[in-house]
Design a protein around this nucleic acid. Sequence first.
DNA 1: TGTATCCGAAACTGTCGAGTTCCGTATATA
DNA 2: TATATACGGAACTCGACAGTTTCGGATACA
Lengths: 200, 200
Amino acid sequence: MTQVIDKPKLGRKRDASRDTDIMNAALDVLAETGYDGMTVDMVAARAKAGKATLYRRWPSKPDLVLDAVACMKAVPLDTLPDTGTLRGDLIAMIKAPSIQDAERKLKIMAGIVSMISRNPELAEAARAALVEPRAAANRIIFRRAIDRGEISADTDIETLCMVGPALATYRTLMLQLPVDRDFLVRNIDAVILPAAGVRA
Amino acid sequence: MTQVIDKPKLGRKRDASRDTDIMNAALDVLAETGYDGMTVDMVAARAKAGKATLYRRWPSKPDLVLDAVACMKAVPLDTLPDTGTLRGDLIAMIKAPSIQDAERKLKIMAGIVSMISRNPELAEAARAALVEPRAAANRIIFRRAIDRGEISADTDIETLCMVGPALATYRTLMLQLPVDRDFLVRNIDAVILPAAGVRA
DNA sequence: TGTATCCGAAACTGTCGAGTTCCGTATATA
DNA sequence: TATATACGGAACTCGACAGTTTCGGATACA
């Protein structure tokens, strides 16, 4: 077995703040140009870092991207709304800060989809960072609606909590249209609530 | 103004069948490796053609891909089902041949999404070939359901006819799960029909 | 104060792929 | 039959980018 050798703590320490700077730069470039359009030089320039600094921390471009995507999940959806009605909760989920965050995530998603099908690790990271948090939040909101008797107990929550994200993704990636408040409210009132069996 | 000069018809004629062979090869490679993973040599090899033959017909790789995507739209959705009920029509739309065709189109979609945001011509071609035909078919089916009084006249058809495609796209691109018959039927019964106000 | 590591910047190397050219052969017109 | 073009195939050029190395300067520890 290989021994784990304690490194002597000589010399200048690594500046940990460069990690987040570089990963944020990577996510920006990813959102703007996509995985294949992104060059390591772009990321270094954006982060005002040397390329050597990047390669000291990540062994390759795919590893950097994987780490950057995975680290997005750190930011948890801030405390869920609890308005007392399903519609109230769903509407409260699409407030300005949350919507802007989602817009960037959709662009990042567009930038890595082609990679996802060929890189299982990246696929898993994207699922954990981009799909699961939103689905989990919706799941809780629907669950509460069942608990208070607002919707039927045999509602297919797993399917329903994908409808919003799926429509938003389709609209961005395929239709190239903005995911604005009107669109989101229409989805809630014309699709999600009726599908859940809430009176119009 | 520039004159259009009639070319003298000397020499061997171009084999028009190579066009479709090459474009089909391009779509195959696109579905398998994505736009950036696709090389012109791959396409040429797949079509058993010389690279020179490709460049004699298209000036660049983007032009070839654009043309290949645009030419998909040629195949029209064969005669729409008319079963007398909305559910019958929607179920009839997901028969085996149609579902296999859709699977390939989803792979192609995954291969070009990152390009779509940076190439308006390709975005338009993708919309015309991949989005619009399915939406148009759904539109007709919902319209007929309104005409026969099965669903309300003020149903938001434009939103509803995107729900199926959006869920299928999301499932393929983000979740990496198969779009099988069970999934499609569940979408119809748990989301689309209830959203349209059809009794369960 | 000396040594080891970090930093940003820039030069360098090696690979890969888009696009071009050339070859021998096939097929059309005149 | 002579000429012009198409074909598949292979060799070639050239630019872009991943990854490495080198530099002068900064920072930590002993």
